[in-house]
């Protein structure tokens, strides 16, 4: 059974159809890249998979491990192993990062019927992961993403991914706004999480990120559809010739 199956998905936002029958199948252990010009619907797809309100699914299905994802609340999806690293992670003043991490992790474990992490185990785990991601401890005491640089926000997303151990990670424009060093740290963090049981969907506008996170399959999205899929060489092709050919095709 596929880990994620998006079948003929049609989505409207404020009376306007954004996704016009999108198909995507992701199996355990695979790394997929979704590339496409701005406005092609990449973030919309990621939001609908995560359960963000405001999107109307008018047709199609999303199955996660064979279950109907669209029937689940966002927090249920998270507990079942769906993780979206946001293109624009929000700042939450007054909620300490550490408190947030612990509350979220324990909420997910509780939903799965698992015991809560003990404080020492939790602290140990956070320390390990944050060290490997070059996240200083004092950053964890601050409000979630408050005063974080673009790179720090993205690393904080990867930190959560490492803590929550999801089976499907969707990374929306992880490379946007990052310089090359920040990008490398974040990409190394993502690569370290890659496992035969865990799939990654890397959404990006540029080929650059795919030098660090090497995809098995590349999809090209244009105007709300996947218009072409292929191997990693497709990304290089796009880099050379641009998206224009696909915009005509769509």
């Amino acid at each position: 059974m596929a880990l994620l199956e998006v079948k003929d998905l049609k989505v409207r936002v404020e009376e306007r159809e954004i996704l016009h029958g999108l198909n995507l199948t992701v199996n355990e252990g695979e790394i997929h890249a979704i590339m496409g010009p701005n406005g092609s619907g990449k973030s919309t797809l990621s939001h609908v998979i995560a359960g963000k309100p405001g999107y109307e699914v008018t047709d199609g299905q999303i199955l996660f491990k064979g279950e109907d994802l669209l029937e689940m609340a966002p927090e249920e999806r998270a507990a079942k192993g769906v993780f979206l690293a946001f293109q624009y992670p929000v700042e939450i003043p007054g909620v300490a990062t550490m408190t947030f991490l612990r509350t979220a992790l324990n909420a997910q474990r509780k939903a799965r019927g698992e015991s809560e992490y003990s404080t020492p185990d939790f602290l140990k785990k956070v320390r390990e992961v944050s060290k490997s991601l070059n996240i200083p401890q004092d950053m964890l005491k601050r409000g979630v993403n408050v005063g974080f640089s673009g790179g720090e926000k993205k690393r904080n997303e990867v930190l959560q991914m490492a803590l929550f151990e999801p089976s499907l990670c969707i990374l929306d424009e992880m490379d946007s706004g990052l310089d090359i060093d920040a990008l490398r740290i974040a990409a190394d963090g993502v690569n370290a999480l890659h496992s035969p049981k865990r799939a990654m969907v890397v959404i990006t506008h540029y080929q650059r990120l795919l030098n660090y996170i090497v995809p098995d399959i590349v999809h090209v999205m244009s105007k709300g559809r996947v218009v072409k899929s292929g191997g990693k060489e497709l990304a290089l092709e796009l880099e050379a010739s641009g998206y224009a050919q696909f915009e005509d095709a769509a």
Binding site: A50, P53, P74, A79, L84, F86, V90, T103, A104, A107
Partner: peptide
């Protein structure tokens, strides 16, 4: 939504 997407 951010918090719910993280399981709360």
């Amino acid at each position: 939504f951010y918090l719910k997407a993280r399981g709360l």
